[in-house]
């Protein structure tokens, strides 16, 4: 896990590692515009400083008010930048079409974005994971959907980005060219924990990828482990910290709550037990906690979790009864 913490240390001054086929196009155009900009900017600054010195007001010097107009010059500095702009536009559009047109024969992954968590489901065998695992040198196609608000899927090392919009499917494709672990960010503001909606993408060799999927598809047997497994995949982790006791994220921490009395928004108190947890998951409004009135509301999971899964979640939450265990 440790190797995942420091993912993309930049290799050059400007960019993170170049790990997909898009990187070549994007970086080329970026450097091209950078040089064009420098070629414009330096003379502008030099002219400015030169004029500041040469024509500065001083005793015995008087400028001439003559130069007010110069048609050839004005035409030049309109037309030349125009052609350059057209070229930049053209290069950008060509690169964009490459990103927009999805090739046939892809490895398909479904992306579920929810406040504040990414979950990936692999078409090959139905496995799920909170980290995105990909095979190297394959065309990958993501079918992305959001449960709640706008999110945006961004892997800097792939130079790939696309918004994830509720009520629509958005697609994104790319072709990883390099094994390793890279950052994956949400780049569309999505509320309280937007900045923690980050995970990693790991590009693996073909065998390792196959092995990983086979491993991922096995859900843990042990009920507590299974609860934790669901906690990481059903977005609970984005709102509820299982770390320090009492740590307040968007939702309450589970730690050390079991069996205690907790205050509700309607003024009553309730014991934190199986029933309370189940109501909280299925009808959160009914069991709204005091102090969370302005928080990002807990979504109802009615119809999305099977009874057996809720039991596992309850078992996991109960296992945190005795305080910090920092599952990480």
């Amino acid at each position: 896990m440790n190797s995942l913490i420091l993912a993309d240390i930049s290799e050059g001054f400007w960019f993170p590692p170049a790990a997909s086929t898009f990187a070549k196009q994007v970086d080329f155009l970026y450097y091209a515009i950078l040089w064009i900009s420098i070629i414009f900017f330096i003379p502008i600054v030099i002219a400015m400083i030169y004029f500041m010195v040469k024509y500065r007001q001083r005793p015995g010097y008087k400028g001439s008010p003559e130069a007010l107009h110069n048609t050839p010059l004005e035409i030049t500095w309109t037309v030349v930048p125009s052609f350059i702009a057209i070229w930049i536009f053209w290069e950008g559009a060509v690169g964009y079409l490459d990103m927009a047109i999805i090739p046939d024969d892809t490895v398909d992954v479904a992306v579920y974005a929810a406040k504040w968590n990414w979950n990936f489901k692999y078409k090959e065998n139905g496995a799920e994971s909170p980290i995105l695992y990909l095979p190297i040198d394959k065309d990958i196609k993501l079918t992305m959907q959001s449960k709640d608000v706008l999110h945006s899927f961004f892997i800097p090392a792939f130079r790939a980005k696309r918004d994830v919009v509720p009520g629509r499917y958005h697609y994104l494709w790319f072709h990883p060219t390099r094994e390793g672990v890279f950052d994956l960010f949400c780049t569309e503001y999505c509320g309280d924990n937007h900045s923690t909606m980050i995970t990693k993408v790991q590009v693996l060799s073909d065998e390792k990828y196959k092995a990983k999927l086979a491993e991922l598809v096995k859900e843990p047997e042990d009920i507590v482990e299974r609860g934790k497994w669901l906690y990481e995949r059903k977005a609970c982790k984005g709102c509820h910290y299982a770390g320090t006791e009492g740590a307040k994220g968007p939702g309450p921490s589970y730690n050390g709550s079991w069996g205690k009395k907790v205050p509700l928004a309607n003024g009553t108190e309730v014991t934190f037990d199986e029933n309370y947890v189940k109501t909280s998951i299925l009808n959160p409004m009914e069991a709204a906690r005091k102090g969370y009135e302005t928080a990002s509301a807990m979504p109802s999971y009615k119809g999305q979790l099977k009874d057996e899964q809720i039991d596992a979640l309850i078992a996991f939450i109960r296992s945190l009864e005795s305080g910090p265990a920092r599952p990480k």
């Binding site: 950008g92 964009y96 790939a160």
Partner: peptide
């Protein structure tokens, strides 16, 4: 000048919302 990087599509795919 930096608007040019953002107006060009392929570079904006990388730079948008950063």
């Amino acid at each position: 000048l930096t608007g040019l990087f953002l107006g060009a599509l392929s570079t904006d795919m990388h730079l948008h919302d950063t």
